[in-house]
Design a protein around this nucleic acid. Structure first.
Length: 418
RNA sequence: GUGAGCGUAGCUCAACUGGUUAGAGCACCGGACUGUGGAUUCGGAGGUUGGGGGUUCGAAGCCCCUCGCUCACCCCA
């Protein structure tokens, strides 16, 4: 399995480099999200990129597609089975239990932005290494949090200028009411077996809820008569869902109830939601999440409920309008060896005082250096030559207006900062 | 994992039905211009046509394999 000698190295399928002009956009989005999250009381939590495989099998769920076919699992040299995290929630839950965070008086509101890994076939808006911004709240069982989270998600997308967004919500019930619904749905689907396509027939046993997703007309028509989860909720889930909806109204948010909104992770209870943008293509969810009241307990921790969402950064970025801010740096043009030295000192001075400052050390002609400053879109250029060194005054040029002034370094600084 | 479409210079694309040494624009580097950018002009560099095999006198174009990209299914952010 040796590679041919002269083959260029390349990135792994489903991964990609985020290069300079784009990386700026990422930084901006990340900073923006941090600000918003923190304004709602969330604090950053960082956990390792890999965990024991078992954590995801138990947390994400052994019957979920993510666990069955999408995990990057490997054995380390000690023979432990490890997995690159495919999602974040189980890691946070693990950390809360392990660090006994529930015994502290602090809010249990956490956010995180970082890479996730899923062995999926790449396509639009889907990568093997992708990034999520994730928020989770623990210990708040009332629907007020559900609504606040959706409100936050909607608000931040709006503020980022994302257009054509839609809020979809549903309730998937709890361990009391869902099994009954499941049984009912199965029997109904079984009755319609003859009308369903091959895929859907298989789904009757594996995941009958997914029949709702089928695009074939016959299946759609057959599914029309199927029972809806929302008609089977127990009293508690029913009232939670109703309160949740009325609170969304209270926030003035438009949403649609989508009884087919079944998220692919096994752990959800009660509220699930998704925000979509029609600009994304087939993978139109910018973010998705829901409530998972049993996970902590299932992990052997205290009986503390949780709710949160994950937002796809790649998807977010692709529907965010670019706001290209002009560059704000100084390009120092130097002529001759002595000037180069003086320029280096000047650069030090400007940088110390908070001005982004660039100089290229090649011995290029003045004209060439000016041309470089222009190409790099410098906001200012500063010419340093023999005359300037003698006078201790330099030619500062505003590259946008073309205005040029002879100034001391202090004056130059003032002009650039002020 | 399944299916479809596409791979020619850094980018966007040419190359008549298989026919000499694979071209152009933009971008890059340099000169014209010896202390002032964006314009013009001249030149330079840049390719094993994704890779491998086959058919042919001859392949960027046809056939097979492979890799990658794109889109869709499954599923998800």
């Amino acid at each position: 399995m040796s590679q041919s000698k002269n083959k260029e190295p390349s990135s792994i399928k489903g991964t990609r480099d985020i290069l300079p002009p784009e990386s700026r956009k990422w930084q901006k989005a990340e900073r923006f999200l941090q600000r918003i999250f923190e304004s709602y009381g969330y604090k950053e939590i960082r956990t390792p990129v890999f965990e024991s495989t078992e954590l995801f099998e138990k947390g994400t769920g052994e019957t979920s597609d993510v666990v069955i076919k999408e995990m990057y699992t490997f054995a380390d040299k000690g023979g432990r089975s490890l997995t690159l995290r495919p999602e974040y929630t189980p890691s946070i839950v693990r950390s809360i239990i392990e660090n006994r965070l529930y015994l502290k008086p602090d809010l249990m509101r956490f956010y995180f932005i970082g890479p996730m890994f899923r062995y999926d076939k790449p396509q639009k808006g889907r990568y093997r290494q992708f990034h999520q911004a994730d928020i989770e709240v623990f210990g708040e069982k009332d629907p007020e949090v559900d609504a606040e989270i959706v409100e936050m998600a909607y608000t931040l997308l709006k503020k980022l200028g994302v257009k054509n967004i839609k809020i979809l919500i549903n309730s998937v019930g709890c361990r009391k009411c869902r099994p009954e619904y499941h049984k009912k749905l199965k029997t109904e689907a079984e009755k319609q077996r003859a009308r369903l396509c091959e895929d859907c027939r298989r789904k009757i046993d594996t995941n009958p809820l997914r029949i709702f997703d089928c695009k074939k007309d016959t299946c759609r028509n057959a599914a029309l008569g199927f029972p809806k989860i929302t008609d089977f909720l127990c009293a508690e889930c029913q009232s939670h869902f109703e309160k949740f909806r009325s609170l969304l109204d209270f926030y003035g948010l438009k949403y649609s109830v989508d009884p087919q909104l079944v998220r692919g992770l096994d752990y959800y209870t009660k509220t699930t939601f998704e925000i979509t943008s029609s600009k994304l293509g087939a993978q139109d969810a910018v973010l998705g999440g829901g409530r998972y009241d049993e996970m902590m307990k299932d992990f052997g921790g205290p009986d503390i409920c949780g709710i949160g969402f994950a937002m796809g950064m790649e998807r977010l970025l692709s529907v965010m309008p670019d706001i290209d801010e002009p560059e704000k740096f100084l390009y120092i043009v130097h002529i001759g060896e002595e000037a180069k030295k003086v320029s280096m000192k000047l650069a030090q001075y400007f940088r110390e005082n908070g001005v982004e400052c660039v100089l290229e050390y090649k011995d290029r002609k003045l004209k060439k250096q000016m041309s470089r400053a222009d190409k790099l879109k410098a906001a200012w250029s500063l010419v340093v030559g023999e005359e300037e060194i003698e006078k201790n005054k330099y030619q500062l040029k505003d590259m946008r207006t073309g205005d040029q002034k002879e100034v001391t370094k202090e004056e130059a600084l003032k002009r650039m900062i002020g």
